[in-house]
Design a protein around this nucleic acid. Structure first.
Lengths: 130, 130, 130, 130
DNA sequence: GTGGTCTAGACCACG
DNA sequence: GTGGTCTAGACCACA
């Protein structure tokens, strides 16, 4: 389920966190679902168990998943709502960065809106939702 | 003019780059304006000259500013006409990713447009609509 | 009767011990009362029988309960008088440490007494004054 | 300044966290003070730098200390007030545990209050404020 | 089998 | 020199 890009500048544990959040948001994993154990996931993505553990701990700290001692790790009930809240701040920052870049590429806000429409259509129509 | 937050997760040199770009966008500094020297700015923001130098080099690489040997560093004239194909493709892809994420967070295209306007105002003008 | 919080940082077997003591304290279970068997309790609280067993063994070691071969586990008569003078010294030392910590946190002796009353009520009665 | 007990059941990183908090509460280290670097402290207490790092990260997450990239780690301005808030919850739980234990030792709430007075006097008079 | 802790040693970005 | 990341391998408590 999780794909790690070892060439990425982003640390492996952050990639795990990010992708796990996406899986929650997409509904691929649902509240109550059991996640692969630290060792299992480490084997699957070919990483060190400690790295996976670090990702799981951060996700737990954020309240996305929870650990039941000796039984494994599970998705919490409120995972999706928590994720959505944090996402808004993150996305506005992304938009801000993007607009700064756009300016230096000679792209104005109007053009960005046109693109939004274009992409919106292609996503709905073409079912390229991934 | 430039405010550094030493507690931020963002490296200082990136904060300098980011804020210098915004100053250009807002028109606080205009094409042809002379920027403070590396050592001056380093003194002002209490940072290592190497750090400021790294930021200036990156800004120069992006064509935002230019260094005239022995005369100092200046904002370039044609900063806004760097339009190149690669950048456009890249930004549309960024927008696409962002819209997909927005979709899973329950954010629609209309909301994104509203945010674009908000951010556009805060970047150009002064009022922080955030 | 016993409520386990699988999310708690406290091990399940400690939660069982703790709650069993409280049940004795509140008088919900009295000396001579038969406790559920290891397997019964394990089923009720959805835990591993080994875990319940570990809790019962510790309670037995402390003299709170006793196991009668083939007949089950019972609350002892003299549960409350198992503790000796050494315990008193230990508790006064605990109190002393606690008062020192309280001092540095700006909590005075009066506040500690108020808390004692609060906690005393919640343990004996039912209303959670917390 | 920090003493680690390798025999303690408490993990080393928690001992560091705990003792650092006490040093803050006591005012031995003040807001703005620079803490020993990860490597320095690791050398001093004879532990692995990673272990010290883990402690520092947790303290930073709690807002007690802050990291200035490449410059070191410092005590935050609001360290003491934050510590005091968290301490209240912790101490009430300690008191609760202590009262349960007291019950089994035949000690009532009145006796505890008397002890509080006794200890309070000895701490003020004898300057045994360890 | 599960996660939690610790050590040792390596490499990297930042300043 | 500073912390951040990752790997490898060990041991322990809990269930």
């Amino acid at each position: 389920m999780i794909q790690i890009d070892p060439r990425s500048a982003a640390p492996i544990y952050e990639q795990i966190i990010e992708q796990m959040k996406i899986l929650c948001l997409k509904g691929v994993v649902k509240p109550g679902d059991k996640l692969p154990s630290v060792r299992e996931l480490a084997t699957i993505i070919i990483a060190n168990p400690n790295t996976v553990s670090k990702a799981y701990k951060e996700l737990e700290r954020e309240g996305i998943i929870e650990t039941l001692r000796g039984r494994g790790t599970y998705v919490t009930e409120g995972a999706q709502s928590k994720l959505n809240e944090g996402k808004v701040v993150e996305m506005k920052e992304q938009l801000r960065q993007l607009m700064i870049e756009a300016h230096y590429a000679g792209i104005d806000i109007h053009q960005l809106k046109v693109w939004l429409e274009e992409i919106g259509s292609s996503l709905k129509g073409g079912k390229q939702v991934d």
